[in-house]
């Protein structure tokens, strides 16, 4: 019988090694062993993702591997997410998407997954999402949070336009806005008037909860 610690270590290692098959195996093993899925997501897969991010920063792991790592994380979390006890009351509603002109989807996908894991109802609009589409969805689903991702300096201005258009549409005061993506900083969030910036998926979840007054720090 595999121990909990072993399971957590294998989960983290699978992500660092960009081994999607192993990540999926660990997710199934978690269910078979009756281990808390949330624990494995947080202490295993998320830890692995953070380690992979550090290795990428240090130039010891490269973009293709980071992408496979992210995919492995999403695949494994999807399996575990399905068995998480359904929360009677959703934590909040989030609309999330990668801003227009930007096709980078992976980081945003992880944020969407982690928000779901933590009880948010998530409307993931995908990538290359027009500001118009964001506004329409905000009108339709009345979210608490609107999150936009941008990976390039050429597209980050879309986040500023989103802020302005939410304002023009009279929707800005009814939502909290969050920004993220490789080129995004807290300074940028302050500059455009976004309510929060999340550097990674876990921080995005924490900030989203904080914005809704649900801080569990």
């Amino acid at each position: 019988m595999v121990s909990v610690q072993e399971l957590l270590d294998r989960a983290a290692r699978a992500i660092v090694n960009a081994d999607t098959e192993e990540a999926v195996n660990v997710a199934h093993l978690t269910l078979e062993a009756g281990v808390d899925p949330l624990l494995v997501i947080n202490e295993g897969f998320s830890r692995g993702m953070a380690e992979a991010g550090e290795l990428f920063e240090r130039g010891e792991l490269f973009l293709p591997e980071l992408i496979i790592s992210s995919e492995g994380m999403v695949s494994a979390v999807r399996i575990l997410e399905a068995v998480l006890p359904k929360q009677e009351k959703k934590v909040g509603v989030a609309v999330i998407g990668t801003i227009e002109g930007d096709i980078h989807d992976i980081g945003k996908g992880i944020v969407a997954t982690m928000l779901r894991v933590y009880g948010f109802e998530v409307h993931d609009l995908g990538r290359d999402v027009s500001v118009k589409k964001f506004i329409e969805t905000v009108r339709a689903v009345k979210p608490d949070i609107v999150g936009s991702s941008a990976l390039m300096t050429t597209t980050q201005t879309g986040q500023k336009i989103l802020e302005q258009e939410l304002q023009k549409a009279g929707l800005r005061d009814s939502v909290k806005t969050m920004v993220g993506g490789a080129v995004i900083t807290q300074r940028w969030a302050n500059k455009i008037g976004a309510d929060a910036y999340g550097e990674n998926a876990m921080e995005a979840v924490a900030k989203a909860k904080e914005l809704l007054g649900l801080t569990t720090k």
């Binding site: 130039g59 010891e60 792991l61 490269f62 973009l63 293709p64 591997e65």
Partner: peptide, 17 residues
């Protein structure tokens, strides 16, 4: 050396990084 591929080697040495 940016690892756009990540698994290219020359004489057994990984070029990325």
């Amino acid at each position: 050396i940016l690892g756009m591929h990540g698994e290219l080697f020359f004489n057994g040495q990984r070029l990325a990084g």
